[in-house]
Simulated scan of single mutants.
Amino acid sequence: MDADLEQLRDTARRFYERECVPNEKRWTEQQHADREIWLKAGAAGLLCAGIPEQYGGGGGDFRHEAVICEEQAGAMVNAFSNNVHSGIVAHYLLAYGSEAQKQRWLPRMATGELVAAIALSEPGIGSDLQRMRTHARRDGDHYVVSGSKTFITNGLHANLICLAVKTDPAAGAKGVSLLMLETEGSAGFRRGKLLEKLGQKTQDTAELFFDEVRVPVEHLLGDEEGKGFGQLMQQLPQERLIIAVGAVATMHRALQETTQYVRERQVFGQPLMSMQNTRFKLAECVTQATVARSFVDDCIGRLLRGQLDATTAAMAKWWTTDTNVRIVDECLQLFGGYGYMTEYPIARLYADVRVSKIYGGTNEVMKEIIARAVERGR
């Protein structure tokens, strides 16, 4: 942390408290945030903070993205995924986009004029991206895309989608390509219903359908077809680290809520905090959260030095999300019956965090990645 990052943290915290938290109930009922929140976030400098200024971004690095992510997670604001928009899609464009593509999309992503999503998951496919069925065939100066995607974050508002397709269905991983789809005016593109979820009820998660959608060839990400799987593998460590950053922030929010509650709650004529079981449980959870923060901070340092490998990122993703779910469960238990009431933030956290063990690659897949590295002696 430095003075610039502390100022950004303060800006982000005030933004989420002022613009998002008061609207959470209404957004939960409508299952999505208002579209205007993206424009407000852009005006506050919270979008594309890690993208160079020449493309309209904040000119920062991953630390800036992490600070914003921490404050959003700590405020329990799930209504719009800046992580997907700024932390993932913007960096695909920065890493693999042509100069024309960067100039076309990144400045408008930074202002919130464009909302970005990444479409990987398909019905029945899960984490096995090599088996995706959405395909794109070349037709002159366009690709013609057919298929469907599901569980797409920012799916309702997205007007720019980083879309994984098979350009050569017979080539396995080498047949995967990434196309940038502008949804406005795209004939054959359709959004399905908003999906009703266990948690993160303010997040617009949707199904997307593509029926002979024409995408200009110049919207291919990278200089040739078949590089999509490699691009995904190169970017996934940062995506998984973003998930870990959010998990750590959520652990600390859960502990903050629980510590305040057990200090005030009287049981058998004494504060709940004075009971040994409460004290020991909190001691365990605080220790785990502290270890998690230290590990994630180390991973951030590795990423900034270009040294974060896929195995370490997988470790960070599975362990922090697993620990987060466990800590939130322990904290909820200390609330007793009140912990099951949605008026208490801990109940919302309990529902919201469970999916973190699934998205970004399930934790079982993360362990398989690690096990393969162990098998190779790395």
Results as ranks from 00 to 15, higher is better:
Q260G: 11
K40M: 09
L304C: 12
E36N: 04
A119Q: 00
L272R: 00
A310C: 07
L303W: 14
W38N: 00
R133A: 15
D34K: 05
V165N: 03
E225W: 12
S98L: 09
P169V: 12
A119H: 01
K25N: 08
V176K: 00
M1E: 11
Q234M: 08
P107R: 06
I327T: 01
K317E: 01
N159M: 10
A75P: 07
R35L: 13
R131K: 15
R108H: 15
Y350E: 02
F280N: 01
Q231H: 14
V353K: 01
E53P: 01
L195M: 14
G230L: 11
G336V: 06
L272T: 02
G50M: 06
T362Y: 12
L334E: 00
R191K: 09
P52T: 03
L8P: 10
M180D: 09
A351S: 13
L93F: 07
N78P: 03
E36H: 03
E6K: 13
P123F: 13
D352C: 07
R348L: 10
R263G: 05
S81A: 13
E284D: 12
L181F: 14
K174C: 12
Y92L: 13
F229S: 04
E24N: 03
D204Q: 11
Y350W: 11
L236H: 08
M251Y: 01
I125T: 10
A49F: 02
C331W: 02
C48E: 01
I300R: 00
R108G: 05
I88R: 08
G222Y: 05
F268Y: 08
A110M: 02
I346S: 01
S177E: 03
I125W: 06
D128K: 06
Q7D: 14
G361N: 02
F151T: 01
G360W: 06
K317S: 05
E375I: 04
A316T: 08
A373C: 03
E196Q: 12
G188Y: 06
G59I: 06
P271G: 01
I118W: 12
I242M: 14
K102Y: 10
G188I: 07
Q270I: 13
W319C: 03
L194K: 01
W318Q: 02
M341R: 00
A110Q: 07
Q54D: 05
L220N: 07
